[in-house]
Amino acid sequence: MRDAGVKVGLGVDGSASNDAGNLVLEARQSMLLQRVANGADAMSAREALEIATRGGADVLNRPDCGRLAVGKRADIAIWDVSGVESAGSWDPAALLLAGPTRVKHLFVEGRQIVSDGRMTTIDLPKVLERQNRLARTLMS
């Protein structure tokens, strides 16, 4: 589709549709599937990241987001790539190939949502307990 000039975006809406609600893992999966179908260099990690960031904004006709630039809206995710998972990576886009899957810091509309890997806006143990209870009720 991209080769034909079609705008392509990528997104996740939660664990019900992609198991983990993790856009980095979804971008990785997209890249790997392209490689399986069309050869090892069919899609680079950089291209998959572009589809997951700029691509979504472009598909939605949102020039106000999708890029880090002055005057744009920005949600910013930061990963710690100093660990063993990223050792030997020479390209920041290699996050899709060899890197942590959990964000270290996350800012949405200027508010810090995740700090040092922990959610700051909710009582996560309480939410998890409720979610697990609801899942058990649904299954019974």
Score class of each variant (00 low, 15 high):
53 T>Y: 01
119 M>R: 13
23 L>Q: 11
46 R>M: 12
112 Q>C: 13
24 V>A: 14
19 D>H: 14
105 H>E: 10
17 S>Q: 09
66 G>M: 05
94 A>W: 02
133 R>H: 12
22 N>E: 10
87 A>R: 15
37 A>T: 05
122 I>F: 12
137 T>I: 02
59 V>H: 06
49 L>E: 05
67 R>C: 04
2 R>I: 14
29 Q>K: 15
100 P>T: 08
122 I>L: 14
139 M>H: 11
95 L>V: 11
86 S>G: 12
61 N>H: 10
70 V>T: 15
127 V>W: 09
128 L>V: 15
30 S>W: 09
139 M>A: 15
19 D>L: 11
91 D>G: 03
25 L>C: 10
75 D>A: 13
74 A>P: 00
92 P>D: 11
124 L>M: 15
92 P>E: 02
23 L>M: 11
13 D>P: 00
99 G>Q: 09
19 D>M: 06
8 V>E: 05
51 I>N: 01
64 D>N: 10
57 A>L: 11
61 N>S: 10
28 R>N: 13
9 G>L: 02
5 G>M: 08
125 P>L: 07
97 L>H: 02
55 G>S: 06
7 K>A: 15
68 L>E: 01
50 E>D: 14
66 G>F: 01
46 R>E: 15
132 N>K: 15
23 L>P: 00
137 T>H: 01
6 V>D: 05
130 R>I: 09
127 V>M: 13
137 T>P: 00
110 G>C: 04
140 S>E: 10
42 A>E: 02
99 G>N: 11
100 P>A: 14
10 L>H: 06
10 L>M: 14
132 N>E: 14
103 V>H: 01
111 R>I: 02
90 W>K: 08
37 A>K: 14
59 V>Y: 06
72 K>W: 05
126 K>T: 12
88 G>Y: 10
119 M>E: 07
77 A>L: 13
110 G>T: 02
63 P>C: 08
24 V>H: 09
13 D>T: 07
102 R>W: 08
123 D>H: 09
25 L>R: 13
114 V>N: 12
20 A>V: 08
115 S>E: 15
49 L>F: 03
106 L>Y: 13
82 S>H: 11
7 K>Q: 10
131 Q>L: 12
19 D>C: 06
138 L>F: 12
51 I>Q: 05
90 W>Y: 13
109 E>I: 00
113 I>R: 08
63 P>Y: 04
7 K>Y: 01
23 L>C: 04
123 D>I: 01
132 N>P: 00
2 R>D: 07
23 L>G: 04
83 G>W: 04
59 V>Q: 08
88 G>L: 05
16 A>W: 04
86 S>N: 07
113 I>T: 11
33 L>N: 03
54 R>A: 10
126 K>V: 01
32 L>C: 04
90 W>D: 03
41 D>W: 03
63 P>G: 08
105 H>S: 04
22 N>Q: 06
28 R>L: 04
64 D>F: 03
6 V>C: 13
69 A>S: 09
